[in-house]
Amino acid sequence: MISLIAALAVDRVIGMENAMPWNLPADLAWFKRNTLNKPVIMGRHTWESIGRPLPGRKNIILSSQPGTDDRVTWVKSVDEAIAACGDVPEIMVIGGGRVYEQFLPKAQKLYLTHIDAEVEGDTHFPDYEPDDWESVFSEFHDADAQNSHSYCFEILERR
């Protein structure tokens, strides 16, 4: 099963200049909980913004210009990325925008964090048809001392 995991502000903004323009430790914990011990696929820009392999996960970098870091697996196509994951129950696609666009048609599940923030962004989550998805989990949280904005975790499964 292919799943996408993303944090989205208003207007589906997911990033600005290779960074997330908010401070939500709870979302980072949600991300870790849902990706640990699963292969993660990301684009080169996302890889560069993280700066290191995510521990406890097979890191697969999709790029037309593969790098030389041998701590991760470099691939040039969506099919190659899927094959590099091996026989696993769930593959997690973690961004960025172009990689989400490439995998959305193949995805069966979306793990979304909806952030109540209007922020400037240069990267967006692809538009998706809500009628194609069923919400199977939703959990709202107010902003607090650690988390700069209110947010809602949601899991959607393709109908």
Rank of each mutant, 00 (worst) to 15 (best):
D142Y: 10
A117I: 12
D116M: 15
A19K: 07
P39M: 10
P39G: 04
E134S: 08
R33M: 15
H149P: 13
E129I: 08
E120Y: 14
I82V: 09
I91V: 15
A26H: 11
S135E: 12
S148I: 00
G56I: 05
E157N: 08
A26E: 02
C85Y: 05
K109Y: 03
W47M: 15
Y151N: 03
A145I: 07
L28N: 02
I5T: 00
S148C: 00
V72E: 04
E90L: 02
A107V: 15
D142M: 10
G121K: 00
R98K: 09
D87M: 09
D122R: 01
G51R: 12
A145S: 08
C152N: 11
N37I: 05
P39A: 15
K109C: 08
D127F: 14
F140E: 12
R71N: 12
S49E: 04
L112C: 05
F137S: 11
A81M: 03
Q108A: 09
Y151R: 06
N147F: 01
Q65V: 14
K76L: 14
R159E: 10
E139W: 06
Y111N: 00
I94P: 04
E101V: 07
L36K: 13
P66E: 13
R52K: 13
D69I: 09
R44Y: 06
L24G: 15
E139G: 06
E80A: 07
L156T: 03
S135V: 09
R158P: 04
D87P: 09
A9G: 06
Y111C: 05
Y111M: 06
D142P: 12
R12W: 08
K106Q: 07
Q65Y: 13
F31E: 01
A29Q: 12
S135P: 09
K109L: 13
R98M: 03
V136R: 11
D79G: 09
E101Q: 10
S3V: 00
G67F: 07
I14Q: 00
W47A: 14
P130V: 13
P39L: 05
D116R: 14
V119A: 09
G67L: 13
R158F: 05
M42Q: 12
G97A: 09
I61R: 00
K109M: 10
M20E: 02
E48S: 15
N34V: 08
N23R: 09
V136W: 06
A6T: 15
D127R: 15
V72F: 15
L36M: 10
L36C: 03
P130T: 12
G97F: 03
I155N: 01
E90V: 02
